[in-house]
Amino acid sequence: MVHTKKIAAGYGKKPKWIISQHPGAHPREYSIPLMVVVRDILGYADNAREAKKIINSGEALVNGVVRRNAHYGVGLMDVIAIPKAKRYFRAMPSRKGLALKEIDEGGSKLWLCRIKDKTIIRNGKAQLNLHDGSNILVDAKDAQKYKTNDTLVFELPKKKINDCLEFKKGNNAMVVHGRRSGDTGKIEDIAGGTITRRSLTTLAGTQMPTDYVFVIGKQNPVISV
């Protein structure tokens, strides 16, 4: 079995061997195995066997869906629910890597996804490709209102689009990569990229690659930060 060091996964200070996540929606380097979430972060189990029992019994939901695979990778902005314990969490960026922020049940109904790009396909449909590797189909005539780097606000568990947060000056955003991960502020400037230069965005006085920035609200964040 392939393993990963706990310290390399972005949480905890002492190296500890853990199971690796299976390839899935989120890139492996930006996700945490569900078993580690249940056992090591939330502390609902003392060992792998107990954690797998909890997961196999369907007591852990990710983005409104029961996940029974202990290797399932939990990633940025995913919503984890343990209904039996009435506890809910969102995977948020921090300087040490992904961190689980406890939220209320109402907050657990909102799931944020950034649009990476979009593709026009057959039958008058467009496919929006999202940051977690998933995608959603919309009518091609509606696709113009969705742009790369915009954030979709989904209602869980229906996964219905409630809102689209534009990637534009004045909107609230969060740093999701780099040394300032977890910082929030308003977008002050956006400099488009070229073939040889990355797009850059200025957030709260600091310029950084645009793909480090994730919109989380308009005048105010739509999620608890």
Rank of each mutant, 00 (worst) to 15 (best):
H131P: 01
A191I: 15
Y30V: 03
L42F: 07
M35C: 09
D46Q: 13
R68H: 01
I120S: 04
I121A: 02
K84Y: 05
T201R: 09
H177K: 15
S199C: 14
I223K: 08
L34M: 10
S181P: 05
H3A: 12
G106W: 02
I195D: 12
R122T: 13
Y72A: 02
D183S: 14
D40Q: 08
F214Y: 15
K96F: 05
I115F: 08
K125H: 10
H3S: 12
I187F: 01
E166P: 09
A140N: 03
H3R: 04
V37L: 05
I41E: 11
N172I: 13
E155A: 11
T202I: 10
D104N: 15
P83S: 11
D189L: 00
K125R: 09
M1L: 03
A85C: 00
M1V: 01
V213P: 02
P157F: 05
D142H: 12
R114C: 08
I187K: 04
L203W: 09
S134A: 07
Y30I: 08
S108T: 07
E29Y: 09
F89M: 03
D40I: 09
P209C: 00
Y72N: 00
G43W: 06
A60M: 14
D117Q: 07
R49T: 15
G124P: 10
A99M: 10
K147D: 12
L165E: 03
V38K: 09
L156T: 08
H177I: 12
A126P: 06
Y44C: 04
D183P: 07
S181D: 05
A48P: 00
I32V: 14
S199G: 15
S57E: 11
T201W: 10
G24S: 10
G75S: 12
V38A: 09
G43I: 11
V2M: 05
D104F: 05
L165R: 01
G193A: 11
K86P: 04
A8K: 08
A126W: 02
Y44Q: 00
K145S: 12
D46K: 13
K158W: 05
K158Y: 09
K53I: 13
I195E: 14
H177W: 13
V215L: 05
I82W: 13
N129C: 06
S57Q: 07
T4S: 14
V65W: 02
K169T: 06
R90W: 05
